[in-house]
Write a protein that binds this DNA or RNA. Structure first.
Lengths: 151, 151
DNA sequence: TTTTTATAGTTGTATGTACAAATGTGTGTT
DNA sequence: AACACACATTTGTACATACAACTATAAAAA
């Protein structure tokens, strides 16, 4: 559906404005779809993100700053996200012995299990939308988005 | 910057995953930039959206459902957004006399003033990113995003 | 007319986001 | 050693989002 129809806009819209609205709306569609996948596992999108980053550490702990740095939304509050994961026993946290200002966060086997259950669903989710494009168009879309935001 | 560098990803990434992350990250960049514009006017992005929709009504009131329908994030809580705008006297609200279940929301002159002050900044914001693309690429990006999300 | 169903909006609760202030720890300077 | 400063994280507050339950009104059915 064209973005004008989504927003029931009556007046014609500048193409620059359309990009903004298209990006924002597409993000909404993707996120809603993804939340449906996560719901039965009782974790949020941002919690999933933290787990995914921790698995990427391959056994090494990550401190709060390292997690933050790898998140999409750089301003989200990592402390409280980790709190929630801790309650569900999906991560552990302890003070770093070398530098007691730092916190070492590790994913637990239970956390890895959750991710493994999710893996096939996540891949299906990624392909659910991209199947509408051929591989050339997929490359083009990635390239245009990267070019677009390069201020 | 390529999305792998943004996320400091070490492993190669599937192009389908890249699109998702590119859309989500681009939305973040756009939104952060836009929030900077709104901050001195002390309204949030979603509150701005409601005001913009109400101005589009050209003097006719909009009920809650009509506002919701024109919003990007269909699940946001319109009641509470309108509450906040009411406190700032940027909108009025009254029960519809024909159907007392409905609420008529109208933008006030003060609300219109806020939008008018913002108008040039919003246009500048839209062009700030799209100036990185030529007009053909802008069309292409809009087209690809619309095609991408058409399930 | 009473009951049922649908519609329009509000409220409650948990979670997440934005931003500033506060806490605790380490480093460098005098 | 005492001080200032930087660093890493936590906490507080206001706002926003997600989702379900609730209230009020209107329309339809019995």
């Amino acid at each position: 559906m064209k973005i004008e129809d989504v927003l029931k806009s009556t007046v014609p819209m500048d193409n620059s404005k359309k990009i903004i609205l298209n990006v924002l709306y597409t993000q909404n569609v993707i996120t809603e779809n993804f939340n449906e996948i996560l719901k039965p596992h009782e974790i949020s999108g941002e919690q999933y993100n933290v787990l995914r980053i921790l698995r990427g550490q391959k056994g090494n702990p990550a401190n709060m700053w390292a997690i933050q740095e790898r998140m999409l939304a750089k301003t989200s509050n990592t402390t409280r996200l980790v709190d929630k994961l801790l309650l569900k026993e999906l991560v552990t946290r302890k003070v770093c012995p070398e530098n007691r200002r730092k916190i070492e966060v590790l994913i637990t086997p239970k956390g890895l299990d959750v991710l493994e259950e999710l893996d096939p669903k996540v891949i299906a989710h990624e392909q659910y939308f991209s199947k509408n494009l051929n591989s050339e168009e997929i490359d083009q879309l990635n390239h245009l988005l990267e070019k677009y935001r390069n201020q």
